[in-house]
């Protein structure tokens, strides 16, 4: 009885977070902020929903499967976000005009100046570490 209510609460809460994330993806003004919504709020909603599912089945094997799903999502979501964010920034996807500071732009312009001056080794370096 109590668990049923808790399960219902977790399912509804999780989908509410997913819905908020989807709203965010529609409403937020620039790509980077949309990414905040897409990675955080939806991953959190997913965890809530699967916590509800784990409670519902109450089975060790199912619990292991669910732990695997949640762990997997929590490890891969930030990596995927980082890769897309970096690619987008290098492609000059615009920032919102309210953006206060940008300490990355000078750095990239610096490395692009190095490419133009024919410094091939320095040009190749920025792409390697995170790949």
């Amino acid at each position: 009885m109590i668990t049923d209510i808790l399960i219902a609460f977790l399912l509804l809460g999780g989908s509410a977070f997913a819905l908020v994330a989807a709203l965010g993806i529609v409403r937020l003004p620039d790509f980077y902020m949309r990414m905040h919504a897409a990675t955080k709020a939806s991953a959190f909603g997913l965890v809530l929903i699967f916590a509800g599912a784990a409670l519902y089945f109450g089975d060790l094997l199912v619990l292991l499967e669910i732990l695997l799903i949640v762990f997997f999502v929590y490890v891969t979501a930030p990596i995927a976000a980082h890769l897309i964010g970096r690619a987008a920034y290098h492609m000059n996807v615009p920032l919102w005009e309210e953006t206060q500071v940008d300490e990355l732009r000078p750095r990239i312009e610096e490395s692009e100046a190095e490419i133009e001056s024919g410094n091939a080794s320095a040009a190749a370096a920025p792409d390697d570490p995170a790949d």
Partner: peptide, 19 residues
């Protein structure tokens, strides 16, 4: 980087070449 991406309003974007 994982922690940064998953916490309050932060998102790790890029890493400098010399880390």
């Amino acid at each position: 980087t994982n922690l940064v991406t998953m916490t309050p309003g932060t998102l790790s974007l890029d890493l400098s070449a010399d880390r």
